[in-house]
Design a protein around this nucleic acid. Structure first.
Lengths: 193, 193
DNA sequence: GGTGCCATGTAACGCGTTACATGATTAT
DNA sequence: ATAATCATGTAACGCGTTACATGGCACC
């Protein structure tokens, strides 16, 4: 969804061909290091957008080169873009892989939960260290996008570390009591057992 | 990936059939409200796992009912699970839709960046309010998974709000200077212009 | 002639979703 | 009857990825 809408926005600026869109997108997000978009995604997305009538394609011949396929925004595409700006970005629910790993380790006995937490904390500290170093090497006036993204990542890493501390404290608490089994609750009308 | 590995973990506990796996997974993550797994995902994932030789399927007939297809972990599946626990969970790079929206609004002129930020802040405050209310209604000793996930979401929302403030401050700074155009940098050897 | 850009894609797969389909059992 | 659970899937699509493929042009 994100790349799709970004393409619409970039085409609103001016008509562009696929290769150019890829470069423009990466410039927008601060370079390939920050967000590497694969050519395949650009071209398949453009095909879907054309199919949906949001962009139109024109073939442009060049002197001494291969033809370019230049895409531009249709009125329907403009509407779609306006709708994207109007709508708020939904807070994406946390499909947290680490959380699932922790819960599986708690209930399956295949791994030690404390070990799982420690391993994750080490990794987060490492990531935080790397990101901070990277951030300090960026010119804040020239590489606006990079600063924005790095700031966000750093703040989220700090939140994750605090969350791990909280998790550990709560685990200590329940250790002094029997571990409650997760309840398998049916969604509908209860049946007699 | 997450659901796939969770299924391996649940099958390590005991052999289960598809429907049961779905219920067990939802119990693990704190109910369908927290993470709704669609049946289609369970069954297609099981098919892929069997294809990969990580689980094996046995048909079990029941008296007075349809046959169940019970899956259990193979040795290869056990290895896979152990590998999952050994490896740290990679910090997923932030494919932030809001960030892209902001950058597009900055450079395309299709929307006002300050308006985009304000809309997002309102939404985050609303989400934070709802989540906090929900969290306060949960029994922390019985619904462990829900507390864990809600805590994490709340902490991330708070981080996002602080990030928005930072963004706005930085935008104010660069407003007093011309907006730097994002640099389209080629990745390879530079060519003579 | 090699490297690397410019420019275009296709094929196949993984994860996840929505929608559709079937049939038995159980409680009201 | 009918509603809802138990239990099994298939089909089609969207987003994203990796890998493969083609060809021209520029620079050293």
């Amino acid at each position: 969804m994100t790349v799709r809408n970004a393409i619409l926005g970039l085409l609103a600026q001016q008509p562009r061909h696929g290769y150019e869109l890829r470069a423009a997108f990466e410039a927008l997000v601060g370079g390939a290091d920050m967000w590497d978009v694969k050519p395949a995604q650009i071209y398949t997305t453009l095909a879907r957008l054309e199919e949906a009538g949001l962009v139109s394609r024109d073939s442009v011949e060049q002197d001494g080169g291969p033809e370019k396929l230049v895409y531009s925004l249709t009125p329907a595409g403009h509407d779609e873009l306006a709708g994207w700006f109007r709508a708020g970005v939904a807070t994406e629910h946390q499909r947290d892989e680490f959380f699932v790993k922790l819960m599986v380790s708690l209930y399956s006995g295949e791994a030690d939960p404390y070990q799982v937490i420690r391993a994750q904390r080490n990794r987060l500290y490492q990531d935080l260290h790397d990101l901070t170093a990277r951030r300090n090497g960026v010119d804040g006036r020239r590489e606006l996008a990079q600063i924005f993204l790095l700031d966000k990542s750093i703040m989220h890493l700090e939140a994750d570390l605090r969350w791990l501390d909280l998790l550990e404290a709560r685990l200590d608490d329940i250790r002094r009591q029997p571990l409650p089994q997760p309840q398998v609750r049916p969604r509908g009308r209860p049946r007699k057992s």
